[in-house]
Design a protein around this nucleic acid. Structure first.
Lengths: 193, 193
DNA sequence: CAAATGACCAAATTAGTATTTTGGTCAGTC
DNA sequence: GACTGACCAAAATACTAATTTGGTCATTTG
């Protein structure tokens, strides 16, 4: 009957953070949701922030997993990058927890939450940077600074997925792939017909 | 002795908005700074927002002027776009009023101020969009959707000028020009040596 | 006796309120 | 009749009381 208490706590906290965000989640509430005395939480986690840390760590792992799944070795660099980036940002856009977190980080500005946002973004960056590095090695793309390149890729996708549709009809996944190809891969030069 | 009262008011208000932002600027203060009774302001402007409107309109005009100055017909499209975009974002970054406004819009979220931010961004977009349209006509670049293209240009420059240097050493004007050339104009395909 | 608990506490938040300030008006001045 | 500043309702702020919160630890429980 006595399930793994730690797992219960993490599960309950994940649900609460997803539903109410970081600030509005109280340790009392987590304890009740987890059917556990409040003190018990503190035998597994030093404090609220560390509990949140672990949950974000899980989230990042899930997101990386989703991105990795989107990649298929026999497809080209371009197609893989598109699938992976789209997947990660879709993830960020659809999962309750990321929605709440990014929202809270932006409008309330909780420092703990902002750190986590940065962590998530940094993780996406590393993932893409690695792919770019490999593509350069394999001469699939022109040589370039992998960090700046990954940075540009991500900023472009975020712009298309989040910013563009704040005042315009959203772009489909295919449209975004085309734009990525046109602007970043092909380039605008050479008006050859 | 009795200078143009309206001009005085605008001048005083500009100074106050630049110094304290929209919310923290009071009509009493503007009146005092302009050496004018408070009621007088309301003979020229319906309310605080309209006064602010006019000042932002001036700001936009100045910014467009700066951008237009950066353009020289005998230089290529690429160089001109770079100079114009850089100039506008530099303007936004250096002018007391834009700094205050964008800051207040972000952290306090005053609706009036956010509208103005949007207005400024929309204006930059139109300016660039027009340049892109002309470049396509003249076959200086590959055919493409001018709005999306202008959007990408701006997002990329904002990323490089504002976002990149939040956690990394800033990029020089030349570096940004090179990156713009590499990613958008040339493209990453074809690893020709 | 080790693991779990919840009453407990200082510190932080929030709710409630009195006070001040603000955008805007308009009767009166010059 | 252009201009003013005392005036007002509404909004913002400062202040305080009351509540809630993260975290602890003496006590209980299995």
């Amino acid at each position: 009957m006595t399930f793994d208490r730690r797992a219960h706590i993490v599960e309950a906290a994940t649900r609460s953070f997803s539903l109410f965000g970081y600030k509005a989640t109280t340790m009392d509430q987590v304890a009740k949701l987890a059917n556990v005395g409040k003190g018990t939480i503190y035998t597994f986690f030093k404090n609220k922030e560390e509990l949140f840390d672990e949950i974000v760590e899980n989230l990042i792992a899930d997101m990386k997993h989703a991105a990795a799944e989107a990649i298929e070795p026999d497809r080209g660099f371009q197609e893989n990058i598109h699938q992976a980036l789209y997947r990660m940002l879709e993830f960020r856009k659809e999962h309750q927890l990321t929605i709440k977190i990014f929202q809270e980080g932006q409008e309330v500005g909780t420092p703990v939450v902002q750190e986590m946002m940065d962590r998530v973004e940094q993780e996406i960056l590393s993932f893409i940077e690695e792919k770019v590095r490999k593509a350069i090695e394999r001469k699939q793309i022109r040589p370039c600074d992998p960090e700046k390149t990954a940075f540009v890729f991500i900023k472009m996708y975020i712009s298309f997925i989040f910013d563009w549709e704040r005042k315009r009809p959203p772009l489909s996944k295919e449209e975004i792939a085309e734009l990525f190809d046109l602007y970043i891969i092909q380039g605008l030069s050479r008006s050859d017909s």
